[in-house]
C-alpha cells in the first residue's frame, strides 16, 4: 500500500501468496492422519503394550546378566539359558506378540480414516481441491502405515542394540543379516495392516462398524490359527498335509509366516523356557508363497478402497 490509512480494511482480501504445485497432497493428508493419531493418548500406551515381549526380555536378560556378573555360581545356569535361547526367535516372538496391539493401533489410526470421511462427505472437500483419488488414498494409507512401521521398528532396534552390545559372545551376531531381515519384515507388516484397514474403512461410514468388522475377521481367523497350532502340537507334527499350511491362514498367521520365512527359523518356545522338542513349532512356509499371499491381500484391500472412493460424485 502506497498510502497508509489510519483505519485498516479488514474486509475480504485475496490470497496471493505461494501455492505449491499439485502432486504433493498425499503428504498433507498423511501428516494430518498422523497428527490426529498422535493426539490420542491411548496410542502412546499401546506403543508400550505392543513392545511388551521385548521389554520383558530386556528385563530378563538384564537381570540374568547382572546376577551372573556378581555371582559366579549362576554362570552355569546362564550358560544353559543362553544355549536354549535362539536369538532370531526372540525377534520372531517380539514381532508376533506385537500383532494384537498392532491390530488395535491399526484400528485406532485407520478404522475411521475413510469411514468418517464417508459420513461427513469429506470426499467433496478433498476432490474439489487439486488433489485426486490416488493422492487421497495414498495419503490415508501412508498416514496409517508410517506410524505402524515406527511403532514396530523402535523396540526392535532397541532390543537389537542391547543384544549386540551385551551378548555378542553368546552368538547374538551369528546371523549378520538379522537386523536387515527385521527391517524388511516390519514394513511388510505395516503395509499389510494399513492396506486391510484402509480397505475395510472405505466400506463403511462409521468408524466403529469398520473396527468391528476388522476385529471380527481378525479374531475368527486367529482362532483358526490357534486351532491348527493346537492340532499340530498335539499330534507331534504328524498331522495330515494341510494343517501346517492352514496355520498361516489368518491375519497374524500371514505375518508370522512372513517373519519365519524371512528370518529362516521355525520358532521356539518364548522366553527361552524349556520346550518339549522342536515339533510343537509349525515349520516356516515357502517364502515366495507367503510373500505373494501377503502382497495379494494388501492389493485386494487397496483395490476395494479404490473402488469405493468415487471421484465423480463431487457434485449432484
Amino acid at each position: 500500500m502506497s498510502n497508509i490509512k489510519p483505519i485498516a480494511d479488514l474486509s475480504y482480501r485475496n490470497y496471493d501468496g505461494p501455492l505449491k504445485k499439485p502432486g504433493s497432497r498425499w503428504w498433507v493428508i498423511a501428516k494430518n492422519g498422523i497428527r490426529i493419531a498422535l493426539k490420542k493418548k491411548a496410542l502412546w500406551g499401546l506403543m508400550f503394550v505392543s513392545a511388551w515381549y521385548y521389554l520383558v526380555m530386556l528385563v530378563v536378560l538384564f537381570f540374568v546378566n547382572q546376577v551372573t556378573a556378581s555371582n559366579p555360581a549362576g554362570a552355569q545356569a546362564m550358560k544353559a539359558f543362553m544355549e536354549r535361547l535362539v536369538w532370531p526367535d526372540q525377534f520372531l516372538h517380539g514381532f508376533s506378540y506385537a500383532q494384537l496391539p498392532m491390530l488395535i493401533i491399526a484400528l485406532m489410526l485407520g478404522a475411521g480414516s475413510i469411514a468418517n470421511d464417508n459420513r461427513a462427505n469429506a470426499m467433496l472437500v478433498y476432490l474439489s481441491k487439486p488433489c485426486d483419488k490416488r493422492e487421497y488414498l495414498f495419503g490415508k494409507w501412508i498416514g496409517i502405515a508410517l506410524p505402524i512401521f515406527v511403532i514396530m521398528v523402535v523396540p526392535t532396534i532397541i532390543f537389537y542394540g542391547y543384544g549386540a552390545l551385551t551378548f555378542r559372545e553368546y552368538g547374538f551376531l551369528k546371523d549378520a543379516w538379522l537386523l536387515p531381515k527385521m527391517l524388511a519384515i516390519i514394513p511388510i507388516a505395516a503395509i499389510f495392516h494399513a492396506s486391510i484397514v484402509v480397505g475395510i474403512s472405505s466400506m463403511f461410514n462409521q468408524a466403529r462398524n469398520a473396527s468391528a468388522t476388522y476385529a471380527g475377521i481378525y479374531f475368527i481367523t486367529n482362532f483358526f490359527t490357534l486351532l491348527m497350532g493346537g492340532i499340530w502340537a498335539s499330534s507331534r507334527g504328524e498331522t495330515p498335509f494341510p494343517v501346517k499350511h492352514l496355520f498361516y491362514a489368518s491375519i497374524d498367521g500371514v505375518l508370522i509366516g512372513v517373519c519365519k520365512a524371512i528370518i529362516g527359523t521355525k520358532g521356539s518356545a518364548p522366553f527361552g523356557i524349556q520346550s518339549p522338542g522342536g515339533v510343537s513349532q509349525v515349520p516356516a512356509p515357502n517364502i515366495a508363497a507367503i510373500l505373494g499371499i501377503a502382497l495379494l491381500i494388501s492389493v485386494v484391500f487397496v483395490l476395494i478402497a479404490w473402488r469405493k472412493i468415487r471421484a465423480v460424485e463431487v457434485i449432484g
Binding site: 468418517n116 461427513a120 462427505n121 469429506a122 470426499m123 467433496l124 472437500v125 449432484g316
Partner: peptide, 9 residues
C-alpha cells in the same frame, strides 16, 4: 458443494 460436508474430527 450443495451437500453438507466437512472433514471430521
Amino acid at each position: 458443494p450443495e451437500q453438507d460436508c466437512h472433514i471430521p474430527g
